[in-house]
Amino acid sequence: MSTETMTAKDRVIKFLQGEEIDRPPVFSGMGNVIKPVLDKNGLNFARVHRNPDQMATAASGSFLDYGFECAVIPFDLAVEAEAMGAVVNYYDDVDGMLYPTIKGKCVKTIDDIKVPDDLSKAGRIPIIVETIGKIKEKLGDDCAVGVHILGPFTMLGQMKELDDLLEECFIEPEKTNAMMERVSSVIVDVFKIYKEAGADYLILREMGATSDVLSPNSFKNLVKPHLIRIIKEMPQPNILHICGNTNFIVKDMVECGADAISVDQKNNTAESREKIGDNVIMCSGFDPIAVLHNGKLEDVKPGVLEKWDGANAVMPGCDLWPDVTSENMQAMVSALKAGRPDGS
């Protein structure tokens, strides 16, 4: 007999607000477009990023068909950079699924970062806004709608040569800071637009700040101040997600002030919990490629359950790779809905 007493939306929101919930939510802060849903609805991956009806259908499918308790948009990482003038390749003529990318590097100096007068009308931002509304029409108050935006370092690294950016950070940090500041303002303003449009929770994804690329010291001095500012100004509830090996910076992540932090499969969450204490909401990521996409059906349950150690919720460590099977999706959702293996 089910002991569930909340809707998926309430569960996600109350979880992020640190309130009592009937069980941990089964959700994500990253994209959840999957091929079984695209195929079922006759949708084309390259076109789904620009059509609110199609994007809403694709995002809602993992809730409607599998009980995954969120609809997260957008599916690609180029929306806000595009709104600031970057040209995006959607790979319309490519067979298979390629995520849109920014064509070339469009920023050398701060003057190249063009902030539109009205961000709500810039690029695909109105499409995301319309999609939020359409998801709400489809799912009502049953399911939580999440919207993610890249962090300032990662977004700047999309628009400016990463090597140049890293060099400039050292030689002329004031220039980099000015650019990060401008991009951060855009991030805050766009988050407000998405919240106003009805987003239930917001995710700041700063994957470029992984410890493979930036030293913990560089993260602390260069990226963290901007994340603190964004999180202070952006609406709630919110999640800060950084992928890769984040054990060295997990305390800094917490100090950025988000309602929850999210880490991926490379983080040792038991070790992180030791560092951050018991009062921080930490979502632990399982490997969406190795476990969910490549894993055999019988491997999915143990693959996701092993990530409970030290975590308040387990979720995909990154976007779901769309080519996942229906069976593995079902196995993942039911394994996580059953809660912690020890029942705690």
Partner: peptide, 18 residues
């Protein structure tokens, strides 16, 4: 061959794998 964008941890990895 271009392998598209996305987060290097998974969406780009998926493209690279395919």
């Amino acid at each position: 061959k271009d392998i598209g964008g996305g987060c290097v941890c998974c969406t780009l990895s998926g493209s690279l794998m395919n």
